[in-house]
């Protein structure tokens, strides 16, 4: 009856995400106004910033789950860390792409080596390294252990990346949304928050699915191992 990684819960979540994405598109591309200086290019804000923030959140979950794995050694934490890093990598790639296009039209360059951009690039490579460790052909317990240690390092990198514009002088502009006052027009602000919610939902939706896929991968691995052992036993019995 259930032939994939979806369940009633994820179907509801998926429907909400898709509806939300449609509404977000309407707000971002049609309803929200153009900016005074950036004009239409401000519409990239609503994809660039939410994907970045959700990706940072995803990496924090990876760090937390890595700590959880090192403390408890349970498969769930390990799979959670991996799934979150995978989805985070996709979102961070989206951040980089949208940021490059946005930078080309507002700054005049696709890329520049200021602290924020440099650290984002490094963070992306670190995540790719982490995912490479997760793909190592090793016995699972050892692989999970190595991945958890590598995963811990995403923490400081993410923090530095997030605060880069505050700590250093950068071409990248500083934070727009702070608790004190948002330097943003009302409709724009609403569209941004909607973007946060929608990309947040998208993240959770993808996370659940990736969690299940990785879990199934482990089960298939076990199955292969069990079969191999059974076969070996049969052989042994046959010989003796």
């Amino acid at each position: 009856m259930n032939d994939g990684t979806s369940s009633p819960g994820t179907r509801v979540l998926g429907a909400l995400t898709l509806i939300g994405m449609a509404v977000l598109l309407a707000f971002a591309l049609v309803i929200s106004p153009a900016d005074e200086t950036q004009e239409e290019t401000v519409r990239m804000f609503y994809v660039h910033v939410p994907t970045a923030l959700v990706a940072f959140g995803a990496f924090f979950l990876t760090v937390a789950a890595s700590v959880g794995y090192l403390l408890r050694r349970s498969e769930g934490w390990d799979v959670m860390a991996g799934a979150s890093a995978e989805v985070g990598a996709v979102l961070l790639a989206a951040t980089l792409v949208s940021g490059m296009l946005w930078g080309r039209v507002t700054w005049g360059v696709y890329w520049t080596w200021d602290a924020r951009l440099t650290l984002t690039a490094l963070l992306f490579v670190l995540v790719l390294g982490y995912l490479a460790v997760r793909r190592l052909p090793l016995e699972r317990e050892r692989r999970s252990r190595l991945a958890a240690v590598v995963g811990l390092l995403l923490g400081p990198a993410t923090v530095a990346c997030h605060y880069a514009t505050t700590w250093w002088r950068t071409l990248h502009q500083g934070p727009t949304i702070t608790t004190a006052d948002a330097k943003m027009d009302g409709t724009m602000l609403f569209t941004f928050f909607l973007g946060m919610v929608v990309f947040g939902l998208l993240y959770v939706w993808l996370l659940v699915h990736r969690f299940r896929v990785l879990w199934l991968e482990h089960r298939v691995e076990d199955l292969g191992l069990d079969e191999a052992i059974a076969e070996r036993r049969r052989e042994a019995v046959g010989v003796s």
């Binding site: 490094l122 490579v125 590598v150």
Partner: peptide
């Protein structure tokens, strides 16, 4: 971490170089 892995020659630079960039 990479010691004893078959892929260590390629894995070690991938992991280490971004970390050493700072």
């Amino acid at each position: 971490l990479a010691a004893g892995l078959r892929v260590r020659e390629t894995l070690l630079p991938l992991l280490l170089l971004p970390v050493l960039a700072p």
